[in-house]
């Protein structure tokens, strides 16, 4: 099966600070050659800690931020603002996004109905029809239209607002929906309601999801495939069951292990990483994870590891993997003693 969405070598550097001549003094390496594919009807989970570039990736896909490099194609059609590519406006009809902050992502001066009906009207749907559709969608996301249609965002609870945001994204009839921490700010009981809704909608509208979250349990529950990001790079990706059961990259292992057990009585041996994720302004050379990695050797600080197959579609970027080109060199090297960095 060919991929519905294909992303190749997506890259974004943000210049920050300017010197006397307007040249940037520092560069944030936000997203560095990110590539992935999603098949129709599947959910790709993107996990990682703050500053790993997962949200930037989402905004790059929507062209809310202009990518420096990279190709984004849906069903083989390439989209972008460079000549020869299909216009971004068309991309936005096929891909929509739900943001984390349910309040900030709704215009406080517009009624719920106006917010949902706004998108379709932009795409030439008549006002009457757009409003009718808004009502149907509200009903579909579990909000009684007769009660909510004239309400303003501040009169709704967080869960209700996020339902409105989902309805707004679906109003354009997209094939792909990016959910950027869409349930992260919700309380657990409400989160479960919204997750159920997302599963139902996915079946009903044959949607494909990109589910971005820092909550590893939720990602495991909702995703078919998972992609782990660290400092702007993909360190590991693969089918959810394989990746969670048999994480190949040391970072993935530590990350998955750091989640406290949800059932009492199972005391856990944590793999505790030292320090915080480093600053993406000056990412470490070589493998970006090496300063926190317990398996790091000299080569890790010099060379960026290549992404290799673990099994099937499960891939990771680490010299420890037998498939890695420099695996033999890595094996022969002594482990370096570790000075905790921060």
């Amino acid at each position: 099966m060919s991929a519905l969405l294909r992303v190749q070598d997506l890259k974004k550097h943000f210049p920050i600070g300017k010197d006397l001549f307007g040249r940037p003094t520092q560069v944030v390496h936000a997203v560095e050659s990110v590539s992935f594919e999603v098949e129709k009807g599947r959910t790709l989970g993107i996990v990682g800690e703050s500053g790993c570039g997962k949200s930037t990736t989402a905004r790059l896909l929507m062209h809310l931020i202009e990518p420096d490099e990279g190709r984004i194609s849906i069903r083989g059609k390439e989209f972008g603002n460079i000549g020869g590519r299909h216009p971004v406006a068309q991309l936005r009809r096929q891909m929509q996004m739900v943001f984390q902050d349910s309040y900030a992502s709704l215009n406080p001066r517009l009624t719920i109905e106006d917010s949902i009906a706004f998108g379709p009207q932009i795409h030439g749907v008549s006002e009457t029809l757009a409003r009718q559709q808004a009502r149907d969608l509200l009903d579909r996301v579990g909000l009684n239209p007769s009660v909510f249609i004239r309400r303003y965002p501040h009169e709704l609870s967080g869960g209700q607002r996020q339902r409105v945001n989902i309805a707004r994204a679906l109003a354009i009839k997209p094939e792909i929906v990016i959910l950027d921490e869409a349930v992260s700010a919700l309380d657990k009981s409400v989160q479960a309601q919204v997750l159920n809704l997302l599963s139902d909608l996915k079946k009903e509208f044959e949607l494909t999801y990109l589910f971005i979250s820092h909550d590893l349990n939720v990602v495991q529950y909702i995703s078919d495939d998972v992609m782990v990001m660290y400092l702007g790079q993909v360190v590991e990706s693969g089918p959810v069951a394989q990746l969670y059961e048999n994480p190949a990259h040391p970072y993935t292992r530590a990350l998955l292990n750091s989640v406290p057990a949800q059932t009492p009585g199972q005391s856990k041996n944590y793999i505790v990483l030292e320090g915080d994720p480093p600053n993406p302004i000056a990412p470490p050379k070589g493998c970006r994870f090496h300063p926190r990695c317990q398996f790091a050797k000299a080569i890790c600080a010099e060379k960026e590891p290549d992404t290799v197959k673990v099994s099937g579609s499960h891939k990771a970027a680490c010299f420890k993997l037998p498939g890695s080109a420099d695996h033999q060199t890595y094996i022969r090297l002594q482990e370096v003693s570790h000075e905790p960095r921060c």
Binding site: L255, S258, V272
Partner: peptide
């Protein structure tokens, strides 16, 4: 805090 930092602080 991020997951890997949260567990450090909890412990």
């Amino acid at each position: 805090l991020d997951a890997t930092v949260q567990i450090q602080v909890l412990l």
